[in-house]
Design a protein around this nucleic acid. Structure first.
Lengths: 334, 334
DNA sequence: CGCTTGCCTGACAACGCTGTCACAAGGTCG
DNA sequence: CGACCTTGTGACAGCGTTGTCAGGCAAGCG
């Protein structure tokens, strides 16, 4: 900037004014400065600008696994919203480890990102002193954290699970199993609890099968085979998220069992599988968008109490919730 | 840092030394400083550090659409590699527009990112003066750019397409169509050209059907119907990327045609569809990783000539390449 | 005892920008 | 004709670090 100033016979401040389109620069001065800028290819150093102004115009997104479509869709939405607000997005992955999450968050706060959208790995980061002391606004997504209330955007897990169970029951299923992801995840636990609650409320058989992850195709296959050998086998499963759904589909195919299925999370091609898969749909893009909106509200000075937004889910009814033909036949026998 | 210094009765420089674990600080001084740091919760301001040191420890990834699994897998790989090298990753989307890409790249260069991994929207960004003048190392991914040679990581498109055509021919297909994505994309064009070349080399019928995108389920459905009414209808299609494959699958289902299919890009559940989908597999994670490795080599001073890495593809043979039963029957008739 | 050596520590400038304030020149007004 | 405003411009400090260099002090050496 000093070079430009010297070349254009003005002060650096005037160059700064031109670069930032500040008013109060005479037309011919501006043109002269612009000419020099173009000629020597000057580009403002945003690092210095940031240091001076205090705002980094950057927000960060911390997720578990960027390759998971659920998170990548959130990521795409967050990036888009950030971009239209002239902010850049740093994406970081904690790979599900609270320890790594702490390190990642500290790094981001050292960088003075203006705000954070976080899918928390553990459940207590809110009380992490370094993070909360920094005053950086955070919006949590998909899972809440313990401690004082924080801005959070979650899915209506109980509602989603209820719609799934009711749908299966309406289709004649009575013995329904729940396959949740790792119980370490709050989401997995909340969905399991919702499942148990609605299951009891509907007066379904008491000896429910519930299995929490991590699941593999093999482990699920073995489980399905074992279940199918029982006296009163289950006829349907509800899977706790997209990972589990995919594993379950592969496992069913592999061991050749036929079960009713409703999966949490929609996924590409769910409608092309045979039978097409009924899912509890939650829209990751809306979730991400909602989170960013809340974050920017905070950045603009919104001081209202922390807010938890529960995003509605929608049951996308396809075919997999029906009572499989083989089961209908078997039941008709005696 | 000044606060810490005052509190610990040392100079800011000593605090700096402690924070950065520089040698040459007496044990008790260090402990005293650390105590104060913990007590008042000091966190180094990386912005200032960056300004002073010149390196931002940040790289950026510019893609077309973060929600597309192909890109999000690249993103996950790039983020991981960046993280292990103590760098942060800024992800940005240009939404396929060269104009927006220019703006995005300028923004990133203003931020002085240390390096860029770019899936170029247009074909000439390399010659963009602002970008090249900045001296920021760039590695292009998935598509090359025109102009002087640049570090590039691309997929072996001709090889992939050839394996697909040969596979279909080996399964008895003779009349094969190619459905490419928008011809604006280099990848789409290169795959089309490879298709034409191998098609001719194998002496297949000359009146090949080739249709470039953008495609929708509806447009493809109409096309399939029209094609099926011809005197000598095609029996198989090759789809030019994951987007097209998905649309084609939906379209086939919708209009009820049965065609052989090989798709470029593997996708989740390709093996669970009926018939399972044979694909040309390219590994986005390896592509992303390769790109980052090259980028960091440049950052560490590698001055060797620009390099184009062609990543091999692998044909994952499933069922969709077979001659559909209906067609076999029809052929047997006369 | 004076001199060198090595170890700690601190003063200071600089990284590149922008906010504040001051100032000059020209115009307007009573 | 002086007081006052408006417009365009520049000097300067300071954002929070770190690299450089210099200095103080104790130990080692001849």
């Amino acid at each position: 900037m000093a070079d430009v100033a010297a070349e254009a016979h003005v002060s650096v401040k005037t160059v700064s004014r031109v670069v930032n389109r500040e008013p109060g620069v005479r037309r011919d001065t501006e043109l002269r400065v612009r000419g020099v800028i173009d000629r020597i290819g000057f580009m403002r150093h945003d690092g210095a600008r940031i240091l001076r102004q205090g705002r980094t115009q950057t927000i960060a997104l911390v997720v578990e696994d960027l390759a998971n479509p659920f998170y990548s869709q959130i990521g795409a939405a967050v990036e888009r919203e950030a971009r239209v607000r002239q902010h850049q997005l740093i994406t970081a992955s904690a790979e599900g480890s609270p320890t790594r999450e702490r390190v990642v968050l500290e790094g981001l706060i050292n960088r003075r990102v203006d705000g954070l959208v976080v899918v928390p790995a553990g459940e207590r980061p809110a009380t992490d002193p370094t993070v909360s002391a920094s005053g950086t606004p955070i919006v949590y997504v998909d899972r809440p954290v313990r401690g004082e209330p924080c801005d959070t955007v979650i899915s209506d897990n109980p509602g989603g699970v209820r719609s799934a169970v009711e749908h299966l029951v309406a289709n004649g299923h009575r013995r329904i199993a729940f396959l949740g992801d790792d119980a370490e995840f709050w989401t997995a636990r909340q969905r399991r609890e919702a499942f148990v609650a609605i299951h009891d409320a509907l007066g379904l058989p008491g000896d429910t099968r519930i299995a929490m992850g991590p699941h593999t195709v093999e482990s699920l296959g073995a489980r399905f085979e074992a279940w199918s050998r029982e006296r009163t086998p289950i006829t349907a499963v509800i899977t706790g998220n997209n990972r589990v759904t995919l594993a379950a589909l592969h496992a069913m195919r592999q061991v050749g069992v036929e079960l009713g299925l409703v999966g949490y999370d929609d996924f590409e091609l769910a409608d092309l599988i045979v039978p097409s898969v009924t899912v509890i749909h939650q829209d990751p893009a809306s979730i991400g968008q909602k989170a960013v909106l809340q974050l920017f509200a905070r950045l603009l000075g919104d001081e209202s109490p922390a807010q938890t937004v529960v995003m509605p889910t929608r049951l996308l009814v396809r075919e997999s919730g029906r009572l499989p033909a083989s089961i209908r036949a078997r039941k008709a026998l005696p």
